[in-house]
Amino acid sequence: MTTQTDVPTVQLESVSKSFGATRAVDDVSLEIPAGSLCGFLGPNGAGKSTTIRMIMSIIYPDAGSVRALGGSALAAKDRIGYLPEERGIYRKMRVGEYLLYIGRLKGLGGTDLKRRIGYWLDRIKLPNVIHKRCHELSKGMQQKVQFLAAVLNDPDVLILDEPFSGLDPVNATLLNEIIRELSDQGRTIIFSTHVLHQAEQLCDRIVLINHGKLLLDVSMEEIIARFDPRTLLVRPLNDQPLELDKMPGVVDFTAGGETGSVEVHLEPSADPQAIMREILNQSPVRSVELRRITLEEVFVRLVMESEGEAAAERAREELSHVENDDRRLA
């Protein structure tokens, strides 16, 4: 059960960071409430990893301030778990030795640390690897060991930078389960990805970044309310025609989707429930549902609003490339 509160766990105020002539993060302000499962989204090079590194006090902003757990992340490092985008491991070290080392650096020790390592190795389905050298593990297994290193200290805040990248579907599902479980325990999870549909399934809060600028920082409910497409998806039964053009509250409709569905666009004041009932009364249908907006559509719309049509088209193309690459990898 998520225990979200209004107390911000992570706060950024007018944060900017440049590398040479490149402005990686540009005047970003945001607050991530305690207990939320927050998706940090944007295409590659948007500034997600730089922002996360500043939250972790690995690098420092040129301007603005960053606070984590009420102070500097440097002081709270033992309460934060971090899985960086670039996975790292000591190749010649044994798995157990590596985890003991990271655990000790996180302030753990003694039998409790060994107990935690044993528990988590079982939990992520990696038994019998404790004495193996890291380079003997497959890439996916190494990634799970790295995830384990991030959660070993039972963190209040868990920051995962592209956690599903390179994982097979079985391990991705396992990781998904664990992330939900940790979120249900009340931990704040910041989860960065460029694959927007993953965030849709998992997150209750979304932060959208593009070219170092913050586009959006709201809850999923707010996104649904704010970007409600006012559209119903209807799949008629036996190709029976629907008489939608004279129905009150309907602006227009488009038929002929791949699945034979009809998109019914509603007036802003129309009650979708009433129109759904009306359609069902009119003729039997295979299904009728309220169409939900995708994060990709939200992203493109926000880019269009802030940077114009051409930029939105570029953003759409970027996202479709990323999505295709991701599918190919999977």
């Binding site: 590194r53 972790m56 690995i58 490092k77 033992d78 934060i80 971090y82 960086p84 670039e86 996975r87 790292g88 491991i89 000591y90 190749r91 990271i102 650096l105 996180k106 790295q146 290193a149 991030a150």
Partner: peptide, 10 residues
Amino acid sequence: NRVMEVLLSA
């Protein structure tokens, strides 16, 4: 080995 960022998180 890219382990530097893991260390710097601790």
